[in-house]
Amino acid sequence: MSSVSLQQLSKHYRLGSVDVPALSGIDLDIRPERFTVLSGPSGSGKTTLLNLIGCIDRPDSGTLTVAGVNVLALKDDALADFRARHIGFIFQNFNLIPVLTAFENIEYPLQLTGVAAAERKRRVNELLAAVGLADRAKNLPGQLSGGQRQRVAIARALATNPALVMADEPTANLDSHTGAAILELMRNLQRERRMSFVFSSHDPNVLAMADDAVFIRDGRITATEQRTPEPAA
């Protein structure tokens, strides 16, 4: 069963009086528990596709099923709740809440989903240790390096044990050494926790780590690659 299934998904943007197609007739199945990379040049539509899969944007037409749920049928509040429980986000610019400490940033999605305080504390400490920031729990984002911030963002994305983690060029704002370490961390966590990670990236290092690769150009899928076999039934 697919983690994400898209059929004839289209999205247009309006620029003044001009209708600009961002995605046209996308059909795609994303396998569960895989490290999937959406790759393509700038303006190809990979971020738009990532946003649609992440349920933070709506298509003009087509169907979209995430974790078995027809998300296009959900109203705004229900969709927000769905994101809180089933989807984690890692952003290019980390997007941590600047007034919250590392601990509180990771804890925030757990609060949204109503997890009890003791369980929150246990999970956050476990995640801080997993990303190597156990000693930075009380630091505000402004007191952390870029790599450390992205580690906090990764921990935040994993906090609710989501079915799907979306990452939009997560290493683009990091130096190559830190970027490689972050990629390694995400790859390990994805395997350990058996989650589906979907990246958008044109970084060859990211592409090299992918289980599955989806190539996009001019709003259309030009090729897909499944580099690892289906797990045994």
Binding site: G54, I56, D76, D77, A80, D81, F82, R83, A84, R85, I87, F89, F91, N93, N95, I97, P98, Y108, P109, L112, T113, R156
Partner: peptide
């Protein structure tokens, strides 16, 4: 604005 977008993406409702 970006922070608002982030919070919404994380699952905070409009009412939140």
């Amino acid at each position: 604005t970006v922070e608002i977008g982030t919070l919404r993406a994380l699952g905070l409702r409009r009412g939140g």
